[in-house]
């Protein structure tokens, strides 16, 4: 019985295991992004504030958008977009910009997520683009229209561009500082929410050509609504960040630490 020499087999090499091949997107596991998107849809079903003068309702998903950047990093944009598209279809009363309404929550998550990932230049460019797109509309050059983006967008710009403030906010959140965590989360929620509401305002203004006679008188009301959302988001955000750390559940801060 003779034995033949076996043919040399091509060497089989496993594909390199990158973060991408392990089912991650922008540093976060896809499973977590999917869970967040599902949470986002569920939150969109809960009307929080009836909004006189604006389409439908402000729903609890505004809170989810505000805190998403801190929890998911830039991946928040993907999770919010996925959740936003479905939520817009299932619960359309929370989206005043119609089929493109998901862009608003995407931008909110993206700006806050990039800032939290310390990609502040990108976050700053996006925030400026969002604010700039408001002023591209000729309607926005009318009396007092410059006031509309001012309150929380200004805070967002300060947090993004002033290095000591930015570093302090990020460090306080990453270390879960006992005292400074609260104001830091508040400021981060301002960034997330500012991205969302300015994008919404800009889109609504382009679509329905609303003049200063609508925007300026209702501004105090909008500031009140935004403040309530950001304060509640701060409470939720602090609870979630501490809870995730204590339970050793995945969050973007782990990825940053790695």
């Amino acid at each position: 019985m003779s034995t033949s020499t076996p043919k040399p087999q091509p060497e089989i090499r496993a594909a390199p295991r990158t973060w991408k091949s392990r089912g991650r997107l922008l540093g976060m596991p896809i499973s977590v992004l999917a869970i967040w998107a599902a949470l986002y849809i569920a939150a969109s079903a809960v009307p929080a504030l009836p909004v006189p003068g604006m389409a439908g309702m402000i729903t609890i998903n505004a809170i989810m958008t505000a805190i998403s950047g801190m929890v998911l990093g830039p991946g928040a944009a993907i999770a919010n977009a996925a959740g936003g598209i479905i939520a817009m279809i299932l619960y359309p009363y929370g989206f005043s910009a119609g089929p493109l309404g998901f862009l608003t929550v995407t931008m909110g998550g993206l700006v806050a997520g990039l800032l939290f990932a310390n990609k502040w230049v990108l976050a700053g460019i996006l925030e400026i683009l969002i604010i700039g797109s408001w002023f591209v509309n000729p309607q926005s050059w009318q009396t007092g229209m410059w006031l509309v983006p001012l309150p929380y967008s200004l805070i967002a710009l300060l947090v993004i561009f002033i290095k000591p403030l930015r570093d302090w906010v990020r460090t306080s959140i990453l270390t879960l500082h006992k005292v400074w965590l609260w104001p830091a989360v508040f400021l981060m929620c301002c960034v997330g929410h500012a991205g969302e509401f300015m994008m919404t305002n800009t889109m609504v203004n382009w679509m329905f050509n609303l003049s200063w006679q609508y925007w300026v008188p209702t501004l105090p009301y909008w500031i009140m609504v935004d403040t309530v959302i950001i304060v509640v988001s701060t409470f939720v955000g602090v609870g979630v960040l501490i809870g995730l750390r204590k339970a050793r559940l995945p969050q973007y801060a782990d990825w940053l630490e790695k």
Binding site: L39, A43, M64, G243, A247
Partner: peptide
């Protein structure tokens, strides 16, 4: 929301 988010993350 806080327990809901934590529970689903688990």
């Amino acid at each position: 929301l806080v327990p809901l988010i934590l529970g689903t993350f688990r």
